[in-house]
Structure formats: C-alpha cells, structure tokens
Amino acid sequence: TTYYDVLGVKPNATQEELKKAYRKLALKYHPDKNPNEGEKFKQISQAYEVLSDAKKRELYDKGGE
C-alpha cells in the first residue's frame, strides 16, 4: 500500500487534493470518533506528512521514505 493509496489519491494529485483527502479521512478515522481506528489514523497522518512536503514527496516518489 502506498501513501497515495492510504489517502485515496492519484500520484499526480495536487497539494489541494491531498489536503482535502487528508481532512476527510482524518475526520472519519479520528480516535475521538473512531477509537478502534487509531492505527489507521496514524497511517493517514504519516502519509499526509510525507506527501504534503515537496522535498519528502519527491524523495518518496523516487523510492525512498
């Protein structure tokens, strides 16, 4: 599973699309609303952290993490 899959976006997604997808999923899986989905929330946050940063995203796209 790639970070793009976690957020449900395509690899060519814009920053705005990433932000929108992250917010939607973060609300859905937030531990306050969904106590059993803490791990999913962490995955979503990690994916967004990497993909929202241009340098980290470039490194990730080249095969790094």
Rank of each mutant, 00 (worst) to 15 (best):
E49C: 12
E65D: 09
A54Q: 11
G64S: 11
S52D: 02
P11M: 08
S52K: 05
V6P: 00
Y29R: 02
K62S: 09
D32N: 14
V6R: 05
Y48M: 05
L59A: 15
Q15S: 15
E49T: 08
E58P: 04
Y48D: 00
K19M: 14
R23D: 15
D5R: 04
N12I: 06
A54H: 10
K33H: 14
I44T: 02
R57F: 03
Y22G: 01
A21D: 00
K62R: 11
E65N: 13
L51T: 01
P35V: 07
H30I: 04
G64C: 14
K20W: 11
A13E: 02
N34C: 08
K24E: 15
A26L: 15
K42Y: 08
D5I: 06
D5L: 06
D32S: 14
Y48F: 11
L25Q: 05
Q43W: 10
G8S: 05
N12C: 12
A21Y: 02
A21N: 04
E58Q: 09
A21L: 01
T14V: 04
E49H: 08
K56R: 12
Y22D: 00
Q46P: 00
T2L: 06
S52M: 10
E17D: 11
A13W: 01
K55N: 13
P11S: 11
T14I: 02
S45M: 11
K24R: 08
N36H: 14
K42C: 10
N12P: 03
T1E: 13
Y22M: 05
G64I: 15
F41L: 06
E16T: 08
Y3F: 11
L25H: 04
D53G: 01
E58V: 05
L59H: 10
F41M: 08
L25D: 01
E16G: 09
L51G: 00
K24F: 12
E17T: 05
K10A: 12
E49S: 13
N12T: 15
K33L: 13
D32Y: 08
F41N: 02
K55S: 14
Q43V: 12
K19S: 11
Y60I: 03
K56D: 05
A26F: 12
S45I: 12
D5W: 05
Y3Q: 02
N36A: 12
E37S: 15
K28Q: 13
F41C: 05
V9C: 09
F41K: 02
K56Q: 12
T14F: 02
P11F: 08
L59D: 14
V6Q: 05
L51D: 00
S45Q: 15
G38P: 10
L59R: 06
D5H: 09
T1I: 12
Q43T: 09
S45K: 15
K20P: 01
K42N: 09
Y4K: 00
R57M: 03
H30D: 12
V6F: 07
E39Y: 06
S52R: 10
K55Q: 14
A54T: 13
Y4G: 01
L59K: 07
E16F: 08
K24S: 11
E37C: 13
F41P: 01
A47C: 03
S52L: 07
